[in-house]
Nucleic acid binder design. Sequence first.
DNA 1: GCGATCTGTTATATTCTGTTACTAAAGCCG
DNA 2: CGGCTTTAGTAACAGAATATAACAGATCGC
Lengths: 244, 244
Amino acid sequence: MARLQPNILVVEDDRETRTLIAKYLRNNSCNVTIASDGREMFRAMTDHRVDLIILDVMLPGEDGLSLCRTVRAQSHTPIIMLTARGEDVDRILGLEMGADDYLAKPFNPRELLARINAVLRRQAIAGTASANDGATALTFLRWRIDFRLRELRNPEGARVAMTSAEFDLLWTFCERPGRVLSRESLLDLTQGRNAGSFERSIDVLVSRIRRKIEPDQQEPTLIKTVRSGGYMFTPRVDAVGAGN
Amino acid sequence: MARLQPNILVVEDDRETRTLIAKYLRNNSCNVTIASDGREMFRAMTDHRVDLIILDVMLPGEDGLSLCRTVRAQSHTPIIMLTARGEDVDRILGLEMGADDYLAKPFNPRELLARINAVLRRQAIAGTASANDGATALTFLRWRIDFRLRELRNPEGARVAMTSAEFDLLWTFCERPGRVLSRESLLDLTQGRNAGSFERSIDVLVSRIRRKIEPDQQEPTLIKTVRSGGYMFTPRVDAVGAGN
DNA sequence: GCGATCTGTTATATTCTGTTACTAAAGCCG
DNA sequence: CGGCTTTAGTAACAGAATATAACAGATCGC
C-alpha cells in the first residue's frame, strides 16, 4: 500500500540528530535526503520527488514553522514536525501550519517510523479521493475493508461493526499479509507506542476480531497464530480502487 | 493551492485593532492594505487586486453590513466580517449579506489567519471546480448543504432545520471529508476557541446533527467516531463535488 | 418583558479497551 | 507417554471515552 521505498527529506540543523534519524530510516527501507536549512530543503524538493518531509521547528534562518507554511502553500507534500516539548501543538497541526503530524523531542525513532507510515497511509488514501490511482480499500476472501470509510463489509455486503482499535489492527494486518508480525510491532504500528513488556492487549484484540470475521471459531483461517512469533494475516489481499 | 502572498484588505476604524491585525497578517505572509472606512476600501479595491476583505461591522459612515452588500453585488471578493458578540450570524453569512465567514470580537489573530486560509482555499476550489459563482453548496449521498443559503436539504429535497451551531459544525465537516478532526480543532474551526467551551460540547452537537442526518441511529455512517481521536465525516465516494 | 428556541454544561448511561487472571494448548524432556 | 514449562485464548473487570438526556443561562422575535 504505502510506497515501497518512500523518499523522506529530513530537515534538521543538528548534525547528530540528523544523522541518527537518517540512519534509522535507511535501515527501515526509506530513501533519505538530508537538509540542514530551508534553502537546502527547497533545493532537494526541486531536485527530486519527496514523499514526506520531517521538519525541525528550530532552524537557523527561516524557521520550521514558516517553512511549513510555505511548503503547504505550494504543495501537498506531507510534513511531520519535530517540536520541542510544550510547543503549541494545535497550531502546528491546525489550519495555520497544516503539518500532518508532529513528534516532541526527544523521541523514539521507532515512533517516528510509525508516524511516517501513518501519514503516508493517510496520504495514499486522501490522494485517491481526488486524483490518482491508489486504493482506498482492500479485499480478502470477498471481505472488503475500506480505510477511508473505516468500514468492514462481509461477503454478503453487510457492514460489520468494528470498534476503532479493532479496525486499526485489522487494517494493519491487511497491509502486511503473509508476514509474521510480532505483538510489539503491531503495537507500534497501530499506536506508535513502545510496547510495555508483557502486554496482552494485542491478543485480546485479535480474539475480538476473530470472533467477528473468522468463519470457524475453532480453527482460525484468516489470522493465524505463530507461536512465540506473533500473528500472521494469511489470505491473499487485493487492492481495490475508490469505493464505487 | 492558496495564493502564496494573498492581498488582504483590512477595513477597520479602530487604529489599534487595525494595526494589530495588519502586523500579524504581514508576519504571516500576507500583503496587507488597510482602510478605515468604506471610501478608503473602495479606493483600495480599484487600486489593486484584493484577494480577501476583512470587514468590521461597525464603521463610521456607511456601516460594514451595507458595504458588504455593495461589494457582494459587484464582485466575488471573499469577505470575512468582524462582528460583535451576539450579532445575527445567519443574516451576515446568509443571502442578505453574503459574507464568507465571520469572527466575533474579541478574537485570536491566529484564528483569523485560519479563517482566511479556509476561505481562500474554498475560493480556490470553487474557482477551479468548474466556472463561476456556484460552489456554494456541497452534496453528499444526495444530501445538499448550501453555505450561502445556510440550509440543508435531504435526498427528497426537503429542508432540514438546522440551528446555527449545528450548521457551522456540519459545514466544517463537509469541508474536510475523510479526515479525523479532533474536538479541539473542531472547536477552533467553528468558534475560534475564544469562548471557553469544553470539548464535550462538540459531542453534544455531533449527537444533535446525527439525529438529523444519520439514516441509522444505531450505526453512524456519515459522522464516524474515532475513539480518542475525534470525529470524521465520511460521505461515500462521489460525495463531495461542486453543487452544480 | 415573555415565551420559544438555542447552546453549552452537567450528570448518567453506555461502550470501548487494556489489564488481569485463569484455563487450555503447545512444546520440552525424561 | 506423563509431568512441567511456556505461550495463547478469552472472560471478567476497571478505567477511560463517548452518547445523550436533562437542565439552565442566553438570545431571539415579538
